[in-house]
Write a protein that binds this DNA or RNA. Structure first.
Length: 272
DNA sequence: ACCCTCCTGTCA
DNA sequence: TGACAGGAGGGT
């Protein structure tokens, strides 16, 4: 489900709701989730909630002596949700929860139909930080992007999905970014001209920033921490629009498969 | 670069 | 019934 804009939306909401709160209990209901040293979480204060790549990270301060922070990381993968209830929580959601975090001020429910999501506890920030560059950080400028792309034979859309160079871009925004940059997703990533790379960088920033502004995209079942859907779905130009007219030129949008995943492209706006 | 796998649900 | 779904790790 969630890519950078969706995870960012949840992180901002949860930071506002949870920061300063205290964990009273952490209950793992799905045995597939294995979380070491659960007991250490009880009584921890939540310093902040942040997004790193596609992960949601709760920075926890243990009570009393050991003041070294712990990092509780949630990766929602395809269908994960973190739902926040200021009170006890919706009983229907609680029944289907993979995990329930009880705070002094409310209940955080981890739901995840396909159960691909993960929950991990890290001891240091270094273990939390992703290898790739945050695409909306100052670290990603033209020079850095050029270096990252250098000589890569990988098709551009496939390249955008790899989390070891840029983090946070998934299948929806990879197609949308290629469209916004007017680049064929099958072009070798390392073969772009200076002008094309500049377009790509602008597209990455523009698409992700706009998607965050609209609280992400709900294509099928994304919900934020308050159970709301993402408004950017109205602004999708190509994703999920196979056969429908391109919003820019009217040419039917085409769908094809790269790496066993759907890619959408306007043949006229993104010539090969 | 391709293949498969983890899991469950929905749609044509 | 089979295709497909916003992710990612593994194998070849």
């Amino acid at each position: 489900m969630p890519e950078l804009p969706e995870v960012e939306t949840i992180a901002r909401q949860l930071d506002a709701a949870l920061a300063g709160g205290r964990l009273r209990a952490v209950e793992i209901r799905d045995a597939r989730l294995r979380l070491a040293s659960l007991a250490r979480l009880n009584g921890c204060r939540i310093a902040q909630v942040r997004r790193y790549g596609k992960q949601l990270v709760l920075e926890l301060i243990p009570p009393r002596r050991r003041r070294v922070a712990l990092w509780l990381c949630v990766h929602l993968r395809m269908t994960g949700r973190l739902l926040w209830y200021p009170g006890r929580g919706d009983p229907a959601e609680l029944r289907r929860a993979r995990a329930v975090l009880t705070l002094d001020r409310g209940t955080l429910v981890f739901r995840d139909t396909r159960r691909f999501g993960t929950l991990t506890l890290r001891e240091t920030l270094a273990e939390v930080l992703p290898a790739g560059v945050e695409p909306l950080s100052a670290a990603l400028d033209a020079a850095r992007l050029t270096k990252l792309l250098a000589n890569s034979p990988t098709p551009l859309k496939t390249w955008l999905l790899r989390q070891d160079r840029l983090v946070g871009i998934g299948n929806i925004y990879a197609s949308e970014i290629c469209f916004a940059a007017r680049l064929d997703p099958r072009r070798p990533a390392g073969g772009l001209s200076n002008g094309e790379r500049a377009r790509l960088l602008r597209a990455i920033r523009r698409v992700l920033t706009a998607a965050i502004r609209h609280c992400g995209t709900t294509f099928s079942d994304f919900q934020d921490s308050l159970g709301r859907t993402g408004g950017y779905v109205r602004y999708l130009k190509v994703y999920g629009r196979a056969g429908q007219p391109c919003r820019a030129c009217g040419t039917p949008v085409e769908r094809f498969v790269q790496q066993q995943r759907s890619t959408f492209r306007c043949p006229r706006c993104q010539p090969g």
